[in-house]
Computed example of a mutant assay.
Amino acid sequence: MTINTRKVAFAGLATAGVIALLAGCGQAPAADNGNGSEGEALDFTPCMVSDAGGFDDKSFNQLGFEGLTEAAEELGVEPITVESAAETDYGPNVENLVDQGCDLIVTVGFLLAEATGAAAAANPDVKFTIIDDYVDLDSDGATDSENIKPIVFNTAEAAFLAGYAAASYSKTGVVGTFGGIPIPPVTIFMDGFVDGVNHYNEVKDADVKALGWDVAAQNGSFTGGFEVGVDAQNLAQGLIDQNADVLLPVGGPIFQSAISAIRDSGKEIAMIGVDADLYETFPDGADLFLTSILKGMKVGVNEVVLAAADDEFDGTPFVGTLENEGVGIAPFHDFEGKVDAELQAELDEIRAGIIDGSIEVTSPSSP
């Protein structure tokens, strides 16, 4: 299914070697006091609600979940988590966590902004943090409540590098992308990717085509959701039929449907992952991943949870960029010997240019 839209709003780990950015309720165990003995239990309950992709999506939700889990283990407390099956679950799930006495509630994704904003306004003593949105529902340029901390990412910067790499690797001169839902945290990847392809064409005097997304018109190909299934597989197949040999599916687990389309085609087609290094998180498709566009959700959530437990929570947004290593691209892994020998040096130079401003990377969805 193809959806055309123009949507401008706020959106939201780094290169190889960077530090990587639950359902149940119980009494917090005694906390480790740092010398191996147990002290008084910490009175703090961190919580999380997923979007419809679920915590096992090998990508977006999973990274946030891991960040929460690791922080809770370090603190010696039991987190409470709830998984959403559909968008209609978001409001009730957030309220459920409020009712269970959560001190910090992490909401995973742009689509939970409305539920997060309403709950934060009604519960000023509860701390909230949301991934991929500012919760500026009144559009005044500021987060609606002081008890909300946004975690957002300028993913276009990293996607620009991936687009350049895709164009460099392509043997057919055609690459393609498609998304789950046309929302800023999705389209920001597509903006950066296509702009990176265009930059390659300018630098190399080439004519690599990027299918599936029109940056100027802000419309392209979308499945309408984040579920694995026939819609995603058909969009991937459509790009393959147009001779694309590098695919960028943007939207949690929909990449798994693209893998099915590639396997069925029998062609040599590479993929670019999003959010996590999918070579590591989805080994069944490891041989297909040229690289992945990384977002520091794991470390972002971890740091916010630890700060909140230490009474150091504030509403200042965390914005991940190439400069602070909040975004980046994964290693080439199995493709290391297949890419151009000069590609990594070129990417390093482009990265430096983006950071110093000599290469401008913009998106209507940039934070």
Results as ranks from 00 to 15, higher is better:
Ala71Cys: 13
Phe332Lys: 01
Ala258Lys: 03
Glu73Phe: 09
Pro92Arg: 01
Phe313Thr: 05
Glu268Tyr: 03
Tyr279Met: 13
Gln242Asn: 07
Val228Pro: 01
Pro79Trp: 04
Phe332His: 02
Ser59Ala: 13
Ala30Glu: 08
Ala14Ser: 15
Ala41His: 06
Val108Tyr: 00
Val230Ile: 14
Ser170Gln: 03
Ala158Phe: 13
Ala72Trp: 00
Gly196Cys: 13
Glu342Lys: 14
Val175Asn: 05
Gly353His: 02
Pro79Met: 02
Thr81Trp: 00
Leu247Lys: 11
Glu95Gly: 04
Pro184Tyr: 13
Gly179Pro: 08
Leu111Met: 14
Ala210Leu: 11
Ile3Pro: 01
Gly220Ile: 15
Val186Thr: 15
Ser170Tyr: 13
Gly180Asn: 09
Ser365Cys: 04
Phe332Asp: 01
Met297Thr: 14
Phe289Tyr: 15
Ser59Tyr: 02
Asn93Gly: 10
Gly225Ser: 12
Ala86Leu: 05
Asp287Phe: 03
Asp140His: 11
Asn302Val: 02
Phe60Leu: 07
Gly67Trp: 07
Leu290His: 12
Thr81Asp: 03
Lys149Arg: 14
Asp56Trp: 00
Leu112Cys: 11
Pro253Arg: 02
Thr107Gln: 03
Ala72Gln: 02
Ile130Ala: 10
Val186Phe: 10
Ser221Asn: 12
Pro150Asp: 10
Val230His: 01
Lys338Gln: 15
Asp99Gln: 15
Val108Asn: 05
Ala167Pro: 07
Ala270Tyr: 00
Ala30Ile: 00
Thr187Leu: 10
Gly176Thr: 10
Ile359Lys: 08
Pro92Asn: 08
Pro92Phe: 07
Gly252Lys: 01
Ala115Gln: 04
Ile151Phe: 08
Gln62Leu: 00
Pro124Ser: 08
Asp284Cys: 09
Lys298Cys: 05
Ser221Gln: 06
Ile148Gln: 07
Gly26Val: 05
Ile130Gln: 03
Gly179Ala: 10
Phe332Gln: 04
Ile183Asp: 05
Gly326Glu: 11
Ala20Ser: 11
Gly315Thr: 01
Pro253Tyr: 03
Glu349Asp: 15
Tyr279Pro: 07
Thr321His: 04
Lys204Asp: 03
Asp51Gly: 06
Gly67Leu: 12
Gly179Glu: 06
Gly117Arg: 08
Ala232Asp: 01
Ala276Phe: 06
Ala341Pro: 08
Asp205Asn: 15
Gly229Lys: 09
Leu248Trp: 00
Glu280Ala: 15
Ala232Ser: 10
Thr143Asn: 13
Gly212Glu: 02
Leu306Tyr: 00
Thr2His: 09
Ser168Ala: 15
Ala119Tyr: 06
Ile148Ala: 07
Pro331Cys: 02
Asp311Trp: 06
Val106Lys: 01
Glu73Val: 06
Ile350Gln: 03
Asp314Met: 05
Ile350Asn: 11
Val135Pro: 06
Glu146His: 07
Gln233Lys: 12
Thr5Trp: 11
Ala352Lys: 13
Phe153Cys: 07
Gly328Met: 07
Thr69Val: 07
Phe189Pro: 10
Val250Arg: 05
Gln27Phe: 02
Glu114Arg: 05
Lys338Asp: 09
Asp205Ile: 04
Phe189Thr: 11
Glu280Gln: 15
Ile240Leu: 14
Gly315Trp: 02
Ala31Phe: 07
Asp133Cys: 06
Gly64Lys: 00
Glu346Asp: 15
Pro46Thr: 08
Val197Ser: 01
Ala352Leu: 06
Asp191Pro: 12
Asp214Arg: 06
Asn201Gln: 05
Asp264Thr: 12
Ser363Leu: 08
